[in-house]
């Protein structure tokens, strides 16, 4: 446990040692602003809730999260520090979890920095704060799922651009996996059970369910186990490909 925290701490510090952290946070806050106020018609709707704010989170994450996760393992491989990391007396699982938690923690910080909008909506009206809280929780969980994919993909290559592009494509697939765009791709050849499984994995469906204010255990379990599976694959990939 301790080793995981030490790895997280180092990783998190390195975000702030470079402009990465600040650029990410500024862009994130700007984009949420743009989405909420322009596209979401926050004021014009005349309703005291944060629905337009959360509505665009999946699309925001689609590009921002892979930009954050692409360096997690690619950079270690490119600079050769992976040899150092793997020969330190910690397990690969601890490294994978440590790095993931750092990235997840960082995204959570960025998300929490949107708190003024929560204050604003409470100032303007009388929103259902339980729903807002649930939406934040759902957003954090969904960010974790994006990050787990990104981390796993970045372990596959030492090229950050490739890691970014592949992660974006995969994340896009999982956002829309309950929708015809993705399902049509499989429907010609895959059996119905697999089609059902794929459509059950839609981030959008699970996120929207939580964001409505109903924290269903199934949605929580979905995101947690989704993260678990990708991180497990991440450990295996690091183990197999560390020296390539």
């Amino acid at each position: 446990m301790n080793n995981i925290l030490i790895i997280s701490k180092r990783e998190l510090k390195s975000y702030f040692a470079t402009p990465v952290a600040y650029v990410f946070i500024v862009v994130f806050l700007m984009m949420t602003g743009v989405f909420t106020f322009y596209l979401g018609n926050f004021y014009e709707r005349g309703q005291a809730d944060l629905q337009p704010f959360f509505l665009y989170h999946p699309w925001l994450y689609l590009f921002l999260i892979p930009a954050l996760s692409m360096r997690l393992w690619s950079e270690e491989r490119k600079s050769g520090t992976i040899e150092l990391l793997v020969t330190l007396p910690i397990s690969i699982t601890e490294s994978v979890l440590g790095k993931f938690l750092a990235a997840w923690g960082f995204t959570t910080i960025a998300l929490l920095l949107t708190f003024p909008i929560w204050i604003t909506v409470n100032y303007l009206g009388d929103p259902d704060n339980a729903v807002i809280f649930a939406s934040y929780l759902g957003s954090i969980l969904m960010a974790g799922a994006f990050l787990a994919i990104g981390s796993c993909i970045s372990a596959l290559t030492r090229n950050q651009v490739i890691a970014f592009v592949v992660s974006v494509v995969l994340c896009f697939g999982f956002i829309l996996s309950g929708f015809p765009l993705v399902l049509d791709f499989f429907s010609n050849w895959a059996p119905q059970t697999i089609l059902n499984a794929i459509s059950d994995m839609s981030f959008l469906t699970h996120f929207n369910a939580i964001a409505r204010g109903v924290i269903d255990l199934r949605d929580l379990i979905f995101f947690i186990s989704f993260i678990g599976c990708w991180l497990f694959a991440n450990v295996i990939i690091v183990e197999l490909k560390k020296a390539d």
């Binding site: 180092r10 510090k13 040692a17 600079s79 520090t81 150092l84």
Partner: peptide, 12 residues
Amino acid sequence: YLPEGAPSYPDM
């Protein structure tokens, strides 16, 4: 262990 080329984290 000192790996070949002594890799370390450049931004630290």
